[in-house]
């Protein structure tokens, strides 16, 4: 039988079942990155070690708040949680604070976070291209910042 245009049914589910992470761990998806936490706190949110925050979204805890580049968000109640003598950062509470949508699969303990809305706000006002980061086919990281000083055409296409 001739294959229909743009038909790759064999690619629908070509993979063997394999766990996303070991039992008790948690995984976060954010802007193409996949970060697995070997250690998390207990509770409804996603409690990670404060030192792990940077690996997810570039933010880090500083005396003045939760900061990324020149943005600092003052610490609020519910972001830092003490449990058994350890301090945890609630990534879900932080997303709620930023108005950052997410979808969670609780059974698998995977959180998929959308972009932080504030990072896109400029585009809608002054047409400045938002920062982004993707890898080319050779594995080289392409960032918006790398394109400065040149004209760029970014064009999407697909096999379909």
């Amino acid at each position: 039988m001739t294959r229909a245009f743009g038909a790759f049914p064999e690619l629908r589910h070509p993979f063997e079942v394999m766990p996303i992470h070991a039992a008790g761990q948690a995984t976060v998806l954010y802007q193409g990155k996949k970060v697995t936490f070997t250690e998390t706190g207990k509770g409804e949110g996603l409690l990670i070690k404060p030192s792990d925050l940077h690996s997810v979204n570039g933010f880090e805890l500083k005396p003045e708040g939760v900061c990324c580049n020149d943005i600092c968000i003052p610490l609020r109640e519910g972001l830092l949680i003490e449990q058994g003598g350890k301090q945890w950062f609630d990534l879900v509470a932080f997303a709620d604070l930023l108005g950052q949508p997410y979808v969670v699969d609780q059974a698998s303990r995977v959180w998929s976070f959308a972009e932080v809305p504030a990072k896109r706000a400029n585009m809608m006002v002054n047409a400045m291209a938002p920062d982004f980061e993707v890898k080319d086919r050779q594995g080289k990281v392409i960032r918006m910042a790398d394109l400065k000083g040149k004209k760029a055409l970014i064009v999407t296409w697909s096999s379909w």
């Binding site: 229909a4 245009f5 743009g6 038909a7 049914p9 629908r12």
Partner: peptide, 9 residues
């Protein structure tokens, strides 16, 4: 694309 019918059916 992940169906027999494909993306142009």
């Amino acid at each position: 694309t992940l169906t027999e019918e494909g993306s142009g059916g």
